[in-house]
């Protein structure tokens, strides 16, 4: 194997070519999203099996869930995905302030989702519907609860990105974390897109 001078900088520090860094970060996030899907996968598998086994129970008990609240949360989350996607485009065009505004809206949507969920859970507990009530409610609480944790994680990530953006870290030339963080936020939306019909709309 020949060794030929390739790089001028060979001192300390592992400067990776920014293009490689961008592509690696994005690819890394896609891999991570795959693991998230499989983390939820166990719950989806359990859902499929128990729903087939206890179709009646699922139909009866799903009536306890509030379709309106679920639908509102769906709209909220999809809207937040829209603002997130527009935020990525904004910073790619160098519009830093627009990104800040869009990030704030996205974060607020996430919080609204959480508040909504808080009231929903509260109402369930009032009616003594807990994870131990039945297989259906166990699934309901596990699936929405794990999803909620991801919403919180997403809000945290977006808040950090917002702070960094306000400090002027991102530009048209460097915005990898925004795009990668955005991918994570969209995953939260993706999973909810399945949870909504599976839990709230059983006919």
């Amino acid at each position: 194997m020949e060794e030929i001078a390739m790089e001028d900088t060979h001192s300390h520090g592992h400067q990776i070519d920014p293009k490689v860094e961008y592509s690696a970060a994005k690819f890394g996030m896609w891999l991570f999203l795959g693991t998230e899907i499989l983390l939820f996968g166990g719950l989806f598998a359990a859902y499929a099996i128990f729903r087939a086994k206890y179709a009646e129970l699922f139909h009866e008990q799903h009536k306890e869930l509030d379709v309106t609240l679920g639908a509102i949360n769906t709209v909220v989350l999809i809207f937040s995905s829209l603002t997130m996607a527009m935020g990525v485009s904004a910073i790619q065009r160098g519009k830093r302030n627009l990104l800040s505004i869009l990030l704030v809206i996205t974060i607020l949507c996430g919080i609204a989702f959480g508040v909504n969920k808080y009231f929903e859970y509260g109402a369930k507990f009032e009616h003594h519907l807990t994870p131990g009530t039945s297989i259906f409610f166990a699934l309901y609480f596990m699936m929405t609860g794990l999803h909620m944790l991801h919403v919180f994680a997403g809000i945290t990530i977006l808040t950090v990105l917002l702070v960094l953006n306000l400090k002027g870290k991102f530009s048209a030339n460097y915005n990898t974390p925004i795009e990668v963080g955005g991918l994570y936020w969209h995953l939260v939306d993706l999973i909810w897109i399945y949870l909504f019909p599976l839990l709230y709309l059983i006919s």
């Binding site: 891999l31 795959g34 693991t35 998230e36 499989l38 983390l39 939820f40 996968g41 166990g42 719950l43 359990a46 128990f50 807990t130 994870p131 131990g132 039945s134 297989i135 166990a138 609480f141 596990m142 794990l146």
Partner: peptide, 25 residues
């Protein structure tokens, strides 16, 4: 590691939930 581990993750989580909340899976 990437794609099999999450499933044991959720499995152990469900086991923990079983012990804490009695979810009954």
């Amino acid at each position: 590691q990437l794609l099999a581990t999450p499933v044991v993750g959720i499995t152990l989580l469900l086991l923990i939930m079983e012990r804490v909340f009695g979810i009954g899976f």
